[in-house]
Amino acid sequence: MREKDLNIKIGKILRYGVSITFILSIIGIIIILIISKTNLSYNKSFNSIYSFIGANINHPTIISFLFIPIIIMIATPILRVALSILLFKKENNYKFVIITSIVFLILMFSVFIIS
């Protein structure tokens, strides 16, 4: 039964992440269609996320908004790993607290050191 509880809780984290992303993505597309004059189009690359936001400094809040659903989507699995550590600890399953912590540390290493 414990494993089922765990599945449901972790499933909920993912579902929240996906639902928020979905709604914000639709809002984002509506924004693109309304303003339609940004320095970017679908086939234009840009040097980095920073220069992109910098180049659209005239309406930074609107353009920056387009990245919010992307960031939430990417953060969802990382958050899932972090919360799994707490859930395993709550169940006193220390083998998996260690295993999940290792995964989390590797992820943090790649996010902060490599990128």
Partner: peptide
């Protein structure tokens, strides 16, 4: 997720493509 952060920072994730893809 690990590689996504790298691609995002380097500017390879374009919201014009990513948003409809996610939907």
């Amino acid at each position: 997720a690990a590689s996504a952060v790298i691609y995002l920072v380097r500017g390879y994730i374009n919201p014009y493509i990513a948003l409809p893809v996610m939907i």
